[in-house]
Amino acid sequence: MTGALNLLVALAMGLNLLALGSSRLPSLIRAAAVQGMVLGVLPLLLEHEFHGLVWVVAAATIAIKGFVIPGLLRRALRTAHIDREVEPLLGFIPSLLLGAMAAIGAVAFAGALPLRPEHAGTLLVPGAFATLVGGLLLLMGRSKAIAQVCGYLILENGIYLFGLLLIHATPLIVEAGILLDLTVGVFVIGIIVDRIQREFDTLDTRKLTSLRE
């Protein structure tokens, strides 16, 4: 069980690096989507007794993170006529280096934390940290709004991983609520992206500086 869990979390950490290294928007969206699906499987591995709600939430997570949200983003790409280039503020190589450093640092840092014995052997905590940092790096280092949405998705995945630590303490209905929030959030961003595009003829968030004050 722990082996499979660690494998999936490691896969998610690898997808972080893939997302940081993607130079085109569709591949970035795909990386975020696959990561979401991988994490959607995790509750099935962690939960000891299988009741209906777990299945429903896992299926909903996979469906929403793997298909609905990427679908929304791709539609935004199409309708707003956005170029496929990512246009990084922070170069790909530095991003990758920072992401890798974050992964190593996360493992070291998690070792220093006083964790409960059943979590100590897993990659859950380092994976959560690495994914959080990866998401934040994407948010900071990419200028296009769509890329930032992907960063936000990955950030949320990191928070979700943390949430799995408490899976026995928090009811799954809370997770379901977070999922709903996320969907609505991306939905709204999709609409805003369209509006910004129509108003300013660009989606470059760097141009938004004139809106301060």
């Binding site: 503020l89 934040l136 900071m140 930032q148 938004l208 500086t209 809106l211 301060r212 004050e213």
Partner: peptide
């Protein structure tokens, strides 16, 4: 510090975290 750049603000949050 209030540069008006979303990225800079995100950086502040990251550094603080």
């Amino acid at each position: 510090l209030q540069a008006g750049s979303v990225h800079a603000y995100l950086l502040y949050i990251f550094v603080t975290l």
